[in-house]
Amino acid sequence: MIDWLISGDRPRSVALGAVLLGILFSLAFAPFLFPGVRALDTAATILIFIVLVASYDLLLGYSGIVSFAHTMFFGLGAYGVALASIHMGPGWDALIVGALAGALSATVLAYAIGLFSLRVRAIFFAMITLAVASAVAVLVSQLFQLTGGEDGLTYRIPRALTPANRVGELFGVRINGRILAYYLLFFSCTALFLLLLRIVNSPFGRVLQSIRENDFRSEAIGYRVVAYRTAATCLSAAMAALAGSLYAIWLRYVGPDTTLSFEIMIDVLLMVVIGGMGTMYGAVIGATIFVLAQNYLQNLMGAASDATSALPLIPDLINPDRWLLWLGVLFVLSVYFFPTGIVGRLRAGR
């Protein structure tokens, strides 16, 4: 049963299995294990980014396609939900229509980009995605009547998912709509991740890997490489859009900074590389570490700085204001020591 759920793609390393189970457990019981608004926010962000990063890994790690438009698709999903909720009024139907419209437009756009540019060299595709993503970002910021411009949009979602909806108490934790929304995210993201895991382990996924390894030979044994690359691009775009829709449900706000910015694109790229390219589990680990570091490194450093206040120099070095510097150092080190990512390292060290 479990083997079927994870598509027979076992962690193949005790340490990796333990880490993954730990993450799953923590996310599944986050509202009870880590009470507080900020902790729940972090857990939800991790969930969203696991799906976003995994969908990007389908492209980068499994198919060997470099795209810079992934956050654009993420944004399409988020804006889909936002616009539907505004124009149809808050409701489940708006969420579903918005998510589907976002995923559909992401697929269509990915298909168009793919048809234009996947026939030619990989670098050309990367450049086109960059251009299209920039153009969309500019459009969103200019069409402020529709998109709210740089301010973004706030909207209401079904009351059942808001803090105002008090359900009761469980294990001393007050259950409200926010926690229900968290579980909506948890189950959706788990399902989407398992779906991605299935796709990469399917006959289709194997073809993608063969194309990554040697597209010339894939074509020579009868796979139409362009068709497969386009399909992978569309699938990955649709998944990113769905992740964006879930993010929009969670935040009840969309704006260029939360969904479309190029910074997020780079974060996603780093998460894939740190976790391990071409291993779906790398997305789980990469997203978890990265989001945790983004949210808590500053606190950790503040605590460490205070604890070492008696010593010379050290408190200044680990002053919370320098957290970005240390985050950078962490990335450089992890890429240097784990060129195959954390998952690759754990599997090799078996």
Partner: peptide, 17 residues
């Protein structure tokens, strides 16, 4: 992969290879 190409199973997305 060759056998799979021959059988036309390349676009089978939801089964385990």
């Amino acid at each position: 992969l060759v056998i799979q190409a021959r059988r036309g199973k390349g676009f089978n997305l939801f089964s385990i290879a």
